[in-house]
Structures are given as C-alpha cells and as structure tokens.
C-alpha cells in the first residue's frame, strides 16, 4: 500500500469510473454528484471517447465540473430529452443511478416505499428507469450500504428491471438487460455470479466481508479470493481535484470520511 491519503468519496469515484472503462463511444451518465465525477474521471483518463452532458441538454468537450456553468466550457453537442430517449433506445448509453432500494435480482426502486396506491413514502416516480434498464448497460451507486437499501425479497416497487426470471415470458431476459457494477460505501459488487447473481467484486480498504454481508438483505456470492478495491493513484486524485474544483465530493458522505477504515466499526 502506498501512503497517499484519500477520502472515501475519492475511492468511490475511482471505483465508479471503472464502470465506463470498456464502453467506447457512448453517452456516459452519472446521476448524482459522485457518479457524475466518476464518469468525468473515466472520460478524462481511460475512456476519452465518452460523451457527457451538463445535466441539462448540452454535451461538453471536457466534463463539466459539478456546480460550474456550461457557459464556462466548450459545448460539443446537443442533448434535448427527445434525443436522450432516442439514443438510449438504441443502446449507446451507460448510466449509473442511485436508487433507494435494490434486490438480489438487481431490480431497483425510486418510486415508493410501502403500498403503491398509498405509499408510506412517495419518492420520485419511475423516471426513465424502466426504459433504461432494458435498453443499455446500467450500474448503481449506494452512498449507504444497509439492509434497508439492499432488501430481502423484492424491492417495494420494481422501477428498473433485473435478472428475475419470474418476470419474463419463458424466463428469458430482455436482450438489452445488462447490469454491470454496484459501487457502495463498503464494497464493489457485480452481477457475475451464477445466473447473474450479485457477487462481491472487491472490498474497500478496512472493510470485512462479514460487514458487507451483515448489511445486505440477501445472500451475496463470495469468490474464494476477494481483492481490495484499488486505492486512487496520485494522478487520479489530481484529476479528481481538477474535475471537481468546488469540492462537491466532500459534501456527499457524512463527515467526508477517510478512504481507509480503521478497525471496522463494531
């Protein structure tokens, strides 16, 4: 291990950027500040072909830092919502969203907690999640890894489709269903287990497998050896500072904790 200091937010940004490494020339969408900085890092380092927007309707040549105006950077394209839909239906996009719940099938919920007709908590509505989920690759981001987020059974209202054979005629998954990474405050998970089961891909420094499993409401596949999530390099930290000059990343996680946990909390 090197002795470079980094925050947990920076670790998650670096882990999240990996989602887009092999995507080539697609629209990269990170929803929320850390996924947005993550896609910016991917574009600014290993996948410069990515196309990213200002969150409104302009593609920018360089990733637009959170809290900065599109007028301050070079615009390279137009992205009104109609074009976003047309493009995503064609599959040339990879989004990382931050749902409220996710289940063992990778189904996620951003609509409502409790009964859908009279929810205990009404949230956004399904937004574009149903269409996104069966048309292009999707990854997920969870700033809190708890059994309330990673639920037992199924999520309260399935907004994005997952690998749940009971929901498809003949159990056949849609051709465009392609779930990739789940980046959480504790670990990186993927869907490379048996029949797309969710698998522990790496553990963040100082986090135990037990801690991840205890905070997940369903069984996770555990490979025999699980690597530690790679720490950011000095180059990556410098890039992140440039991509987020207003340090929005420091405001996302409570108390902006360090990237290497001390003894895992009891």
């Amino acid at each position: 291990m090197s002795n470079i200091e980094f925050s947990l937010a920076e670790l998650l940004i670096v882990a999240g950027a990996e989602a887009w490494r092999h995507d080539g020339e697609v629209m990269g969408t990170g929803i929320g500040p850390l996924p947005r900085i993550a896609v910016s890092l991917a574009k600014a380092s290993f996948n410069p072909k990515l196309a990213t927007t200002d969150g409104e309707c302009w593609y920018t040549s360089d990733p637009l830092p959170p809290g900065m105006k599109v007028a301050d950077v070079e615009v390279e394209g137009w992205s009104p919502y109609e074009r976003v839909f047309s493009g995503l239906w064609g599959g040339r996009r990879h989004a990382m969203g931050a749902p409220v719940q996710l289940d063992r099938f990778g189904q996620s919920n951003i609509s409502a907690i409790g009964d859908h007709a009279k929810p205990k908590a009404a949230m956004l509505g399904a937004r574009g999640f149903p269409g996104n989920s069966i048309h292009h690759p999707n990854s997920f981001f969870f700033p809190q890894h708890t059994t309330r987020a990673f639920v037992a059974g199924e999520v309260d209202y399935v907004c994005s489709a997952g690998y749940n054979p009971a929901r498809y005629p003949g159990g056949k998954f849609p051709a465009g269903l392609d779930l990739r990474l789940i980046v959480t405050e504790l670990a990186v998970l993927d869907f490379r287990g048996k029949n797309h089961a969710i698998r522990v891909r790496s553990l963040h420094p100082g986090v135990s497998l037990e801690q991840v499993c205890d905070n997940t409401g369903f069984p996770l596949e555990r490979p025999e050896t699980i690597p530690t999530t790679p720490a950011p390099t000095a180059e990556q930290l410098a890039l992140i500072a440039r991509l987020d000059p207003r340090s929005v990343r420091k405001t996302v996680l409570k108390n902006d904790p360090p990237g290497i946990r001390q003894e895992s909390a009891a």
């Binding site: 399904a126 269409g131 399935v158 994005s160 929901r167 498809y168």
Partner: peptide, 9 residues
C-alpha cells in the same frame, strides 16, 4: 414498446 417489461409498471 418494450418499456415496462420486467417492472411493476
């Protein structure tokens, strides 16, 4: 449309 397939919608 394919949209909605696999979801509670």
């Amino acid at each position: 449309t394919r949209i909605g397939i696999g979801t509670d919608l």
